[in-house]
Design a protein around this nucleic acid. Structure first.
Length: 922
RNA sequence: GCCCGGGUGGCGGAAUUGGUAGACGCGCUGGACUCAAAAUCCAGUGGUAGCAAUAUCGUGUGGGUUCGAUUCCCACCUCGGGUACCA
């Protein structure tokens, strides 16, 4: 019986299902380990060969951990809300729930064939009311909490109300949208509606007029991470800034904690860097500048207080409220024109024309508090309203943007730092934080870093301002004008939002006739009949964004059937957080920020046991497509082989990679592929048609999609699993190329033949030789190390070498082969189960223990092989010696091998690297 | 612009972190089996010189540290990712 993967894989997949082999309990004597994959959005196209890469890696790790004696939670589910299903619904009228369910069924079927060890009982779908009930529940909690800056955590809004009632804002340190000040008397005099309006300024989930990214083509607003280079990430539609009343989450309140938390995480440094940049902490000072003749002041934020003596003008953001306040009457017309121009520009234009310098003089003058000179106040779009105070002090000599602006409008450039190299300020600004201060009064002669401190102190002393930390991280806009998402558990009374009672959750998504905005421009939910509370209050028409459902799903897996809580206390205390999270780095600024924020909040309110949800994170790389091309001779139906294409005028066309083998085109299959090519003629080289190729994104339009189902049908799931790992380092991006798959398939067949030949089991009970044990233990050691370090691509060669060596030794001994089968089981579980049973074991190999390796089988002589070169003799030590250096030296010099190479030459010195090498210099 | 990563045979990539560079696989070449092909098996395969043993060069480029560098340091070239008037 040859290796019959079809039979074997079918058999064991059925066995696992029937015996619930991978079912896991929330309590155990064993230590826990939680392995999670970023759950997929089930698209209509189904899985391609790139999708399971991370799942295979995490499955190998899960299986390994199980064999190492851990109670492993390894679930899978579906991120089911999303734009594609809704767009499809708009086009076809098909309910998105229906298509989503179909897609999920297809995904599940494809995943099942790969032999994952998921606990199927725990599967979740974000669009399931039993699931999104808890998304809504968490939202209500965010509405009912504010972020207390004293405690650095979320606190109930009821506490805030109490504080307002007794002391007003005095002593209240809370994260807010706009700073507010009022007394208890003022608060108590306010109407219910006015009080609610004030509280929205503090709530963690809040409704506010904010500048949002509005995408007219998609008809919805988008979060910052959903906008890339000024256009929507999905669909690439233009995005404009627009003021709208929208739900937001006060993520910014958690900026420092999200930053600090990174230190405790075992994530790739590059990913941490991305998050650090995104959070964008910058330390500086806020400084007040008097505005001449107004009695009012402008506050600026700067990280370079040291350069204040060089501040020769100020600039306001066009959208800043300062702008209209400080526009002088004679400049009113010019400013109005400029603001009009700015408002017309899209985000994209603004970004693509960064170099373009525009601006207008406000007509006002401010006073530099250190030089007492009067400086003009300008307005320009290069200053952003949403960052800092919306106003800056411009130091053209030491900031390149200010420099460009000063040059364009002829403003003075005053150098205040001497870099010691004679930097030419007529060419460019000097931005570096190095050098000595000049022209700067009391800080003259100080180093830049000292000067920053000195000025900041002086500013505080003179009451001109305070030091201040700013973050780039913005609050997350949480409303979407869409149908296919979680409904908000919100109703409106007197135009103010109120939360539904928990007992009314889940608030189910209503049926509607069409999935488009209403004629009056309301979101699709405006079409729902009776979309109001029993009391008749209207319900919220927006739905939640895609990241809502994916922000706390890992908690739900711990306790997926709990009707009373998002996660039960006991389950949460047991599983705590994800020990290994596997997923793509593209979620660095989206999901991985929101999810951390969400979990920090749940931690604050005592729902989640740990602040950080994902202790270790591995980013698997993307598998790209390898496209093939044919070359059509212009104006004909004749195709020329790649090697000859230079001799003709050709057009390059993508050809389906599934009818190309080793870059050779299957001519018959090509003629049958598309009717247009039925009569195609070919110009061959050496009787073959050679295709061109390139690495591109795997997509339908490039005809380079490889379906895992096809690979499994031809080679089996174990081969697919092995090959995906063998392709290259887990974290690297790499093209899929089916060509090499034969290699791992051959290996599995060879491995099989160690156990079975000529239809019978040939494994014997003989005691293994020293050499065989060395082969075995070498392999176990290597493989265990590789798995622990996620270096799966190198553990497969270890198995291959081992198999070749055992074949050469004609070793069919159970004492060697059984541990080997267990070690292989994380990679090729079907094959491992089969041979495990052939050896007479019962149950699943999952219940075995990963073999331990024994160093004593791997050691031989203290120094194995001398190599001589360049007048030196070198010995490699195969393991650390317990002897002293002098003893080693003496032993080596006395050894006959040494004498052979030295041939009497006197030794100049010896260099000993313990455990590694001895060099003898002659 | 700024912040991260990378550059090793014809190709994917090893080298567990300063110690025999090119493991393993693909591809290619030769051989065995076959009427033949496919499949399978065996051998060879970085460049140069040589029948050969062997010598010599060789990890993007140029320098440096070291007995010893793909690995560490400096400068440059180049590819990829993140981010971008964030003051």
């Amino acid at each position: 019986m040859e290796y019959d993967f079809k039979e074997i894989e079918k058999k064991w997949q059925a066995y696992w299902k029937e015996h619930q082999t991978y079912r896991v309990e929330n309590r155990s004597e064993k230590p826990k380990f939680y392995v999670l994959d970023m759950f997929p959005y089930p698209s209509g196209a189904g899985l391609h060969v790139g999708h399971p890469l991370g799942y295979i890696a995490s499955d190998i790790y899960s299986r390994y951990k199980r064999l190492k004696g851990f109670n492993v939670l390894h679930p899978m589910g579906f991120d089911a809300y999303g734009l594609p299903a809704e767009q499809y619904a708009i086009q076809t009228g098909q309910h998105p729930a229906v298509t989503t369910e179909q897609n999920i069924a297809r995904y599940r079927e494809q995943l099942d064939k790969i032999g994952f060890s998921f606990d199927r009982e725990r599967e979740i779908k974000t669009c399931d009311p039993h699931y999104y009930k808890w998304t809504q529940w968490a939202f209500i909690r965010m509405f009912n909490h504010f972020y207390c800056l004293d405690a650095q955590k979320a606190r109930p809004v009821s506490e805030l109300v109490k504080a307002f009632e007794t002391n007003g804002t005095a002593g209240v340190q809370a994260a807010c949208t706009v700073p507010m000040e009022f007394t208890a008397t003022e608060w108590n005099a306010r109407s219910e509606k006015e009080q609610q309006e004030v509280l929205l300024n503090y709530r963690i989930a809040y409704l506010a007029e904010t500048m949002v990214n509005w995408c007219p083509q998609l008809g919805t607003v988008l979060a910052n991470d959903e906008v890339k280079e000024g256009v929507s990430e999905r669909g690439g539609c233009p995005v404009v800034q627009k003021k709208m009343r929208q739900w937001s989450l006060r993520v910014s309140a958690y900026a420092q904690r999200l930053l600090d938390g990174l230190e405790t995480l075992d994530w790739a440094d590059s990913l941490k860097d991305i998050q650090r940049n995104w959070i964008g902490r910058s330390q500086g000072a806020e400084i007040l500048f008097d505005v001449k003749g107004s009695g009012e002041q402008i506050e600026v934020f700067t990280t370079r207080p040291d350069t204040i003596f060089g501040a020769s003008f100020m600039v306001l953001a066009p959208e800043s409220e300062y702008t209209c306040r400080f526009t002088a009457p004679e400049q009113r017309e010019a400013v109005r024109e400029y603001l009009e121009y700015v408002a017309k520009r899209t985000e994209r234009e603004r970004q693509s024309e960064v170099k373009r310098v525009t601006g207008v003089f406000s007509g006002s003058y401010a006073v530099n508090p250190f030089t007492n000179e009067s400086i003009p106040v300008w307005i320009s779009e290069y200053v952003l309203a949403g960052y800092g105070t919306g106003a800056i002090m411009a130091v053209p000599a030491h900031d390149s943007r200010d420099y460009a602006f000063a040059r364009k409008f002829g403003l003075p450039v005053v150098p205040v730092i001497d870099d010691g190299q004679g930097h030419d300020l007529s060419e460019s600004s000097y931005d570096a934080k190095e050098g000595r201060m000049i022209n700067s009064g009391f800080i003259d002669g100080l180093e830049v870093k000292e000067a920053i401190r000195a000025v900041a102190e002086e500013v505080e002393k003179r009451g001109l301002g305070t030091s201040k930390i700013n973050y780039r991280l913005r609050d997350a806009i949480f409303s979407r004008q869409r149908y296919w998402g979680e409904p908000f558990p919100v109703y409106y009374k007197d135009d103010m939002p109120y939360m539904l009672d928990d007992s009314r959750l889940p608030l189910q998504l209503p049926e509607i006739d069409k999935y488009l905005p209403t004629e009056t421009g309301e979101p699709p939910l405006g079409r729902a009949k009776n979309w109001k509370t029993e009391e008749g209050y209207p319900l919220e028409l927006n739905t939640m964004p895609g990241f809502a459902g994916s922000s706390a799903y890992y908690l739900r897996y711990m306790d997926p059937h709990n009707d009373q809580a998002l996660v039960g206390r006991e389950a949460d205390q047991y599983w705590r957080s994800v020990d290994l999270y596997m997923g793509g780095a593209e979620h660095a600024t989206g999901h991985l920020i929101y999810s951390r924020f969400w979990n920090h909040f749940l931690y604050d309110i005592g729902v989640s046991a740990e602040q950080e949800p994902f202790r270790k994170l591995i980013n698997q790389g993307m598998i790209q497509g390898r496209s093939n091309f044919v070359y059509r001779v212009r104006g004909t139906n004749t195709f020329v082989s790649a090697g000859l294409k230079e001799q003709y005028e050709t057009t390059e066309l993508h050809v389906n990679v599934n009818i190309v083998h080793n870059d050779l085109l299957d001519l018959e299959a090509f003629r049958n592929w598309i009717p247009e090519y039925a009569n195609a003629e070919f110009i061959l080289e050496e009787g073959k048609y050679v295709c061109g190729w390139a690495v591109e994104k795997m997509s339908k339009s490039m005809f380079n999609v490889v379906n895992p189902d096809d690979i499994i049908a031809e080679y089996g799931a174990d081969t697919l699993r092995l090959y995906e790992m063998f392709l290259g380092p887990l974290e690297a991006h790499k093209p899929w190329d089916t060509q090499g798959i034969d290699g791992v398939f051959k290996f599995l067949r060879k491995f099989w033949r160690l156990f079975v030949q000529d239809d019978r089991l040939i494994v014997t009970g003989e005691a293994p030789s020293k050499e065989e044990l060395k082969v075995l233990h070498k392999t176990i050691k290597k493989v265990a190390w590789d798995i622990e370090n996620f270096s799966f691509n190198t553990s497969i060669p270890a198995f291959m070498i081992c198999t070749n060596e055992l074949t050469a030794l004609a070793c069919h001994k159970r004492a060697v082969l059984e541990p080997l089968a267990i070690a292989l089981s994380p990679f090729a579980p079907h094959m491992a189960e089969e041979v495990w049973h052939l050896l007479g074991n019962t149950g699943s190999v999952t219940t075995a223990l990963f073999p331990e390796w024994d160093e004593t089988y791997l050691t031989e002589n203290a120094f194995d092989y001398p190599v001589s070169f360049n007048g030196k003799v070198r010995f490699k030590l195969s393991q650390p010696l317990s002897a002293t250096q002098a003893e080693i030296e003496a032993a080596v010099l006395a050894a006959p091998e040494t004498a052979k190479y030295l041939e009497g030459t006197p030794v100049k010195k010896t260099i000993i690297v313990p455990g590694k090498i001895i060099n003898i210099v002659v």
